[in-house]
Design a protein around this nucleic acid. Sequence first.
DNA 1: TTATATCGGATAAATAAAATCCGATTTATC
DNA 2: GATAAATCGGATTTTATTTATCCGATATAA
Lengths: 141, 141
Amino acid sequence: MKLTRECEYAVRCVLYLSHEGKEIVVGRRRIAEEMEIPGPFLGKIAQQLARSNIIEIVQGSKGGFRLVPSPEKLTLLDVIEAVMGKVYLNDCVLRPDSCFRSPTCHVRLVWKAATERLRETLRKTSFAKLLEAESEYLSSD
Amino acid sequence: MKLTRECEYAVRCVLYLSHEGKEIVVGRRRIAEEMEIPGPFLGKIAQQLARSNIIEIVQGSKGGFRLVPSPEKLTLLDVIEAVMGKVYLNDCVLRPDSCFRSPTCHVRLVWKAATERLRETLRKTSFAKLLEAESEYLSSD
DNA sequence: TTATATCGGATAAATAAAATCCGATTTATC
DNA sequence: GATAAATCGGATTTTATTTATCCGATATAA
Ligand code: SF4
Ligand code: SF4
């Protein structure tokens, strides 16, 4: 019932890239250091983000990662499902056949509803909003 | 981001006991068989449910488990938190100190809100409702 | 007293998460 | 071109968690 650290790191990475701006290439080491992510692990995570076209990986000297979509269009759900696959709370939500009770089980319907509610919450949160909220917070000092 | 099997089994067990009725003692083997739960594992789970006063364990010959609260008062959240501890989606929701970003991080607020929404959904679902819904479904054949 | 149950602590097995390693490859710069 | 600075991506290792079982102790009905 919990986020994996992999997801958490992915969100942090994208948050950092959003902050730097859409077209800017930022080195892996720098992201890892500033966001407290184990460097080589970030590499692995980046590969998954790249497969989902959330970032573009630039190789070679001065290489790094660059955000592809604009932060307005990019949601928490996009990033999380890029590294975790589809979000759901119980196997039977996705594969009803996995349980003999599923034809009559109303617990399953609760999990289904809760899953959709959760995905909806994440879908509604864009990185643009997150950045805006944080900068407002900081400027109100 | 997923329910453990332990939780799933706990819910099934309580569902079965609710169905049988509040004062009835049902043997562990029978519950395990009918609900497809590994027998000894159910024993462990039952101990946790007993600690939270959700069931009472009757020892000795003809022993087994008995539901303590009435199904109207008992919610999915009660059962799940009895075996998992408090439900939350990310460490920083419960322990803000676990992350250096938490003072300004708005992702954290999303996790917090989503966690509360999830708990609310589970809190609203009583076992009485679940049973009723299933029996309605069955009688509409 | 015996047969039937569960208890509860310890432990084993299986699975998944988290992290790292390293040869290959790509690119900027001199 | 040669060199240095990056990441790639597959394999592997380490660690943590989940899942399940074992067994001597204990409790109860008959
Ligand atoms: S018992 Fe219900 S909730 Fe549990 S796995 Fe089966 S269908 Fe899903
Ligand atoms: S970065 Fe934000 S969401 Fe992630 S752990 Fe830290 S406080 Fe929580």
